[in-house]
Design a protein around this nucleic acid. Structure first.
Lengths: 204, 204, 204, 204
DNA sequence: GATGAATGAGTCTTCATTCAT
DNA sequence: AATGAATGAAGACTCATTCAT
């Protein structure tokens, strides 16, 4: 066979990554064997090793790749110019996450959870996640500052604190969505509104 | 009739569970071998099998046991009568979680993450977590209703929605605390206050 | 099973080492698989791993162990007080080596060759061999000095040079014995005598 | 009809053999993979299979080829007419071997050792080595007979015995040179002289 | 004719669990 | 009752060789 084209090479990698996602979705990251992925991808063991250096390489790439995709999917909501207020923004963000994670035969949310778990024991994975999340959070900070200028968030509180809080709410949604499986994006939009429109002030 | 007393039996189990916690903290759940736990606990392999049915049994018990402890630790804050407002409550809850999770030679937060991951592939673990979290959330609902009566949360919004949102914020805090490791309980207390004291309304 | 006794443990190790020797004798060191050794030893794979850390551990121990045995077998000839002259000594040394290497169902000479080969790519093996051989050579130096005092070797030449030369002759014998397989200890005894009893001097 | 000329074909083979030598020198024979050689030679996998039948073919040819070269390099010393006495001859032989084995980026001595090792498990390799060495030894016999006529070796001892002994010394030198790495050709020239010029006789 | 991607048998090693003592 | 040695199935990964392009 002649040398494979760059495009074919990328397609092969993607094929393997998707197989890995399906396996991780079903069994978790650690419990997935390389043979599971090989079987799911329809390739031979050694063919796969031409495209990835090993299990860890697949895990890291699968996690990083899903985060890249998520970042691209949520970009407009994070950097867009329209001054949507917090509660609505929260609903849109979660809808965007749900939409991005739902795939034909698997869902990326559990993979996200597995990624957090993996990050606890693989410093490299943690650094990848950390990098993406910090970037993500920085974008939320910008959004919060816009809200502060518009009077939709208190200017007395550092924007970073608000951003961290909203980030937690987004991340925690994923936990409840995968463990309880009884809530949707609207719930948090309403919930956040319910906190923000309290009649009595809450000066902590 | 058992040779050892019920109390001794429980102590043995606790001894093994703490060994498991330390191992899980260091290596994650799946990467921890039963031999790791045996070595850490100072018992013999077969002795351990008298107290637990196997690895899965240990995992499930370790996770359930930590949740029981956490529930007991946070109980007063959840069911107590004092009408602490949302932002302050958030700070106290997170402080309580941090305090409960910090142990001499390990931290239970990563174990929580591993538990979520485990729940994705072990329905039994998921049910255990789900049960605890639902109970937990129900207690938050009661708290939100108290806030609604006190005008600290909008009565127009179902209390369950607000409770779900706050629950997400609590859970997401754990993610950021274990991945970014750059935030503390106060941050979320301030952040929540920043959202609640916005001058402009946010009618979703 | 209760804890195995030190003696039983050593016997197990010896059992594995002898299996390894047989395999190495037949197939060489690198071409021998750990499964070959396991099969030959009659143990299970995992049982074997209780006694050795892996293939390299077996290789190194097999080589070191055979050298220790050889050193013990040749000790008397090297350190004994009787002033046997060079040619006779050469014959006795080679007979001792032959006797030590001949086992019931294998021969250690090829293992020696494999050890030299292994030493070229495993620095640790090389250091082990080097240590034994230096010690060995030092003993020959002492012997040569005795000969020099008795007039059986020229005192004009450093004893170390003579020792190195004799050491080469001993080592080279092993090469010819395993490649050509057409010579015996007596041959070298005679050959050395033939060189030493030349009528004409040889002042290089 | 072949597309490439006989000369080109030989050049290609030589190119591969030199790549193999470098790999064998670095990693030993068995530990060298065919991919190592392919990478080192700069050819493609299948191109290489046009010039050699497989790994064993390369090994055998690499060993045989180095021996052919060595024979050519030492020929003058072995068959030349000059009546150099034993000790000097020994020094010259070893110098010739050292000179032949030292290459720009590798040394053939370790390959020689690997060849001996390989011969223990590949009868065909053994036969190749054996053939070369027997021829080599026959030439030494002729040399010894010349010494006997010149009184430089005892005529009472069969020339073959002396030749075997000298051959061992030459071969053993290679062992010490690659394992201890602390000796040079002169050492053996002196050592042999030290044995031959003893004042006392050594009638075995 | 030449390429290099693909193969599948094989390599070393580890694991949860059991059972002889 | 308790030990810890033993197991066999499975784990990740590699290799010499082939063959579709």
């Amino acid at each position: 066979m002649p040398k494979i084209s760059e495009q074919q090479w990328q397609e092969r990698r993607q094929q393997i990554l998707e197989a890995a996602w399906r396996c991780f979705f079903r069994n978790g990251v650690q419990a997935t064997t390389i043979d599971d992925i090989i079987g799911e991808s329809g390739m031979s063991a050694s063919a796969m090793y031409r495209y990835f250096n090993g299990k860890d390489d697949i895990i890291r790439t699968a996690i990083a790749s899903s985060l890249t995709g998520l970042g691209a999917a949520l970009g407009p909501l994070l950097t867009g110019a329209e001054p949507q207020p917090p509660a609505g923004w929260m609903g849109e963000m979660l809808k965007g996450i749900e939409r991005f994670c739902a795939r034909r035969d698997f869902n990326l949310m559990p993979l996200g959870i597995h990624g957090w778990s993996e990050a606890q024991r693989d410093e490299e994975v943690r650094n990848v996640l950390r990098g993406y999340y910090l970037q993500f959070r920085a974008q939320i900070v910008a959004r919060v500052e816009a809200w502060q200028r518009a009077g939709l968030a208190s200017a007395e509180v550092p924007a970073i604190d608000v951003a961290e809080t909203l980030m937690s709410t987004l991340l925690g949604y994923i936990v409840q969505a995968t463990i309880m499986r009884d809530l949707g994006p609207e719930s948090h939009a309403r919930g956040l509104a319910g906190l923000m429109t309290a009649s009595g002030a809450d000066p902590r």
